[in-house]
Design a binder for these strands. Structure first.
Ligand SMILES: [Zn+2]
Ligand SMILES: [Zn+2]
Ligand SMILES: [Zn+2]
Ligand SMILES: [Zn+2]
Lengths: 146, 146
DNA sequence: TAAAAACTCTATAGTAACTATAGAGTCAAG
DNA sequence: CTTGACTCTATAGTTACTATAGAGTTTTTA
């Protein structure tokens, strides 16, 4: 039961180019090839790709996923590392959420500063963006982007 | 009162290379140069960079910031567009937060599935990552990354 | 005054996880 | 036998930077 890359893409909800990209990155093993040099995938590939996509839908990085796949490929090990990785990922998500919530409070504050349609020059939003004391004194590099 | 790029970096909490990058991207106008070809900045640059950094700390993209700077540079306009842009940004943040919260519930679910230290092969976490029905039937491409 | 340290310059490549494009080859149907 | 759908490789672009190389400038120090 061998399928081509387009079918694998449909089954996994993953674009064809992305599958080739995962192969290049070493997450998916190189599949067999047909006479015409087309990739041919079997059940193991399908399942592995679904695993990867599931992890991606949980916002894990490819490097985290690589680590999980590595553990999965050595099934005799203790699963403590799996727990550690998951725990670290949960904490990252929590931190990101609280950063975004703080950021949103700030944005909503800013929105209040415009009391209707007037000139850009007088708009409290742009003024608030220019000279702001909401982060403390000087502009800090408290980046939250990722 | 002209300062060099290193001083501007210190004042704005922004790296030197980033300042040059903003110049290349057209967010900061090209400054005057000294005899030795060093960039020389004045008050207008300092204020403009602080504006940019403030917007960045609110997770705005450079393209959003470019739009705001464009409005700021034409002060006679109606400020409706500023409001629209801010509103759209707030909504993006809200969507990202709710996506992350959903994701976190999922991760916490998964964490429950391991009941202590055993082999990777038997670990409920890895099994949960492999065959999961939590998103519905097949893996959907409900990506939340950005 | 000369050497050393600190700063600045340009240009280029790398990061993450893809997406888009060009140009050629393969396969099934009409 | 041609059309269309699919696949192949290789390369460049995306975002907002970061890192590096190699050279020139300014300031500090001996
Ligand atoms: Zn306004
Ligand atoms: Zn602020
Ligand atoms: Zn376990
Ligand atoms: Zn799941």
């Amino acid at each position: 039961m061998e399928i081509r890359i387009g079918d694998l893409a449909k089954r996994s909800g993953c674009e064809v180019v992305t599958i080739r990209y995962y192969e290049k990155e070493g997450l998916l093993p190189k599949p067999a090839r047909s006479g015409g040099n087309f990739r041919l995938y079997g059940d193991a590939h399908i399942e592995r790709l679904q695993f990867i996509r599931h992890c991606r839908s949980l916002d894990m990085t490819l490097s985290e996923i690589r680590a999980l796949l590595g553990l999965r490929d050595n099934p005799m090990q203790d699963c403590g590392e799996v727990n550690t990785l998951l725990e670290a990922h949960i904490q990252q998500v929590e931190m990101r959420v609280s950063a975004l919530l703080q950021l949103k409070r700030h944005l909503v504050d800013l929105r209040e500063k415009c009391s209707g349609s007037r000139s850009v020059e007088a708009c409290g939003i742009l003024q608030g963006l220019g000279n702001c004391n909401c982060h403390g004194e000087s502009a800090t590099n408290s980046q939250t982007s990722g």
